[in-house]
Amino acid sequence: MKSLTRSIPMVVTLLACAFLFIPIMQSVLAGLTVNYFRGLSSGLTLKWVGQVWQLYSSSIFLSIWLALACLVVTLILGVPAAYALARNPGRASRILEELISLPLAIPGLAIALALLQLYGSYHGFRTHWSFILIGHVLYTLPFMVRSTLSVLATIDLTTLEEGAASLGAGPLRRFFDIVVPNALPGILAGALTVVTLSIGEFNLTWMLHTPYLKTLPVGLADSYASMRLEVASAYTLVFFVIIVPLLMAMQWASARAQRNMQ
């Protein structure tokens, strides 16, 4: 009886995993077989992966570039914003925090349309990568702010700063010597979230992209639409290789930030 109560959840878990894993494995295999319709008997090859690299390497680099630029911008905007919110708790701060978080609740499509309406006519800007960057920053900024804020909220920031001020440290030194180092676990968790989300973002980017500015997920959609299935599947494999380590690092950093708060 006891073994039954223990084994049922295990079986359910394994089934759920299988439900998720089998399509992924199939896709990965499809990207590695010579001819998907003839199956594995046609043999394994890296030809399709090579083709993906040839056709879409610019998308890969654009995505990495966008993610890093997005990270820099969210760091510059998000960390001071979180600090200001932590130092001035109150109604106004709560409202501001909700406002920053708004892009999470609004579909990327709507944000993209708004951006296009407002800036679409500035041609140089419309076709520049920084146009997509704006969308990514809007979407990822709340993650940076919240992650940093949650760590700052557990620190007696006012007293620590008073301590530093009594030793002669001005506001800027206090920010870089005391606030940033003590918020680091939250900043790190936020940074990994921002990079992962930016690389994987599709909705908004698909609306904002131009034929010369295709990011990694937009390229993926493009390959499924216009290439043979083996190439598209190989693309999925490449996507996985980039995103899975990032996801794992993100998990690790969040767990570390959580530990730090206790």
Partner: peptide, 11 residues
């Protein structure tokens, strides 16, 4: 200044 909670820098 010596604070009641000491305000030592944990970093």
């Amino acid at each position: 200044m010596v604070f009641q909670s000491y305000a030592l820098f944990p970093n």
